[in-house]
Design a protein around this nucleic acid. Structure first.
Lengths: 139, 139
DNA sequence: GCTTGACTTGGACACTGTCCATTGTACGAT
DNA sequence: ATCGTACAATGGACAGTGTCCAAGTCAAGC
């Protein structure tokens, strides 16, 4: 049984077959799936699951802080189950591959107080872009 | 006459009324507009301009490096005419206000070589999120 | 096993962006 | 000044992503 499901249950989540399947899909593959990809994989196990339910469930997981939304391109949001360890993303501009990476310092601390304009800054999203080895080699 | 137009002309751009209007809209307001907002403002001056033309023109400006695309939310891309000074963005999670900010160091140098996985890293996009003073005050 | 309110469904809808065939026009050549 | 042509604009159809809602279903507590 996944840790993700455990944590959600502890927070009073009603446990349904649909939510279980979505959590298992996220927990199972450590890649960054779009909502529709999650739906496709979930439908493999529970054919009658609807798209709306997957969107709702993902949205709830994000609100609870169990999953992080990543927007690396102009297309679909992606969902990253690795929410409890802060990290950044490295994206290939050509093939779209995404890797989790770790910067040497905390990016939040890089924004000086006089550049915050009174904002209460709580989060930072960092996306590096470039070419992966395969694409750089012209593959 | 705008600097933006000057630079584009020097690069062999054919100058049309539509392109002029789009450039003027971007140059005139130092905010971060969506493509459709640009279209709305452009249509104020040149009513028959089409949406496709605005999208095309913005895309060309981005390719030429004169304008930067910013995706701060899941909705529309925004266009930042301030392309020649590297900067990051600070976004209010509630009202969506966007400010240009400057970090204390170069974020690109914060990614160690052993975290690059052979990628040729050429760019980094940093978005800080939080609440602006008004929204934090419950306004 | 009931009851109840939360959850799911599925289809319609909205928004953003792209595509393409047709029409129009800026600009160099004459 | 005029012409020819390649480049640009048009606008309407289309695709992908995400949201909404009314009706039906079901998990969980009693």
């Amino acid at each position: 049984m996944s840790d993700l499901l455990e944590r959600l249950r502890e927070r009073g989540w009603r446990m349904t077959a649909q939510r279980r399947v979505v959590a298992e899909v996220l927990d199972g593959e450590h890649v960054h799936l779009t909502a529709d990809e999650v739906h496709a994989r979930a439908a493999g196990r529970l054919p009658e699951i609807s798209r709306a339910t997957v969107y709702n469930t993902l949205g709830e997981m994000v609100s609870l802080g169990e999953v992080v939304e990543v927007t690396t391109d102009r297309r679909a949001k992606r969902y990253d189950p690795n929410a409890h360890r802060p990290h950044q993303h490295l994206v290939c501009a050509r093939c779209g591959t995404i890797r989790d990476v770790h910067t040497s310092g905390d990016p939040l601390s890089q924004l000086p107080a006089d550049e915050r304009f009174g904002f209460t800054v709580s989060d930072v999203e960092v996306t590096y872009r470039g070419l992966c080895p395969d694409c750089a080699a012209g593959a």
